[in-house]
Simulated assay, not measured.
Amino acid sequence: MFQFPPFGTTTLAQWCDLQEELIRSRPLKPRTISDRLNNLRHLRLSLGNRLLHQIMPRDLELLINNIAKSGRPFTARRVHIEANDLFNTAVYCRLLVNNPLSPIKTPTPRPARDRLSLLHFLKIREVAESWKRPWFANCLNLALVTAQRRADVAVMAPPHVFASHLHVTQQKTGACVAIPLELKLDAIGMSVGESIDRCLEVQPNGNTFIARRDGKPYVTAMLTHSFAACRDEAFPRKTWRSPPTFHEIRSLSERLYRTQGIDTQTLLGHKHASMTDLYNDERDVEGRTYRYVSLS
Rank of each mutant, 00 (worst) to 15 (best):
T169P: 01
N138H: 03
T208A: 11
Q148Y: 01
S195F: 04
V177G: 02
R231H: 12
R213V: 15
T106L: 12
T169F: 00
P134S: 10
V168F: 04
T173Q: 10
L122V: 09
F121N: 08
T169Q: 10
L142D: 00
F227S: 09
F121P: 01
M190R: 03
P204K: 09
L116D: 07
A157N: 11
A178L: 09
D152N: 06
A221N: 15
C176H: 11
T208F: 07
T173F: 12
H120K: 08
N141A: 06
N138I: 01
I196L: 02
V168I: 11
V155P: 03
D186V: 10
S226P: 07
L200I: 06
V127N: 07
A112T: 03
R113S: 07
R212H: 09
L116C: 03
A229S: 10
L181F: 01
A234D: 02
A147R: 02
E233I: 13
F136H: 11
E126H: 10
L116N: 01
I210L: 06
I104P: 08
S164P: 00
T169M: 08
R231G: 13
A211V: 06
M222V: 14
S130K: 15
Y218I: 02
V155H: 06
T220A: 13
Y218M: 04
D214K: 12
V155A: 13
H120F: 08
A128Y: 05
F121T: 05
E129C: 04
H165T: 03
I104L: 12
W135Q: 12
Q171N: 05
N207R: 15
W135L: 05
M222C: 14
C176T: 13
V155I: 14
F121W: 14
I124D: 02
R125L: 04
L122R: 14
T224F: 13
K238I: 11
A157G: 06
L200P: 02
L166F: 01
H167G: 07
T224D: 09
G174Q: 04
T208I: 09
H160S: 08
Q171K: 10
R115G: 12
A154K: 13
A175D: 08
V127D: 03
S242W: 15
L166G: 00
R198K: 14
R149T: 08
V161C: 01
A157H: 10
F162N: 10
L185H: 04
F162R: 12
T220Y: 07
R133T: 07
I104K: 10
D152Y: 07
P107R: 12
H120Y: 13
N141Y: 07
D197I: 04
R150L: 12
A178T: 03
R133W: 15
I179E: 00
T106C: 14
T239G: 04
L183V: 04
D152G: 05
R115M: 08
W135C: 04
P204T: 11
T169D: 09
V219Q: 15
L181H: 00
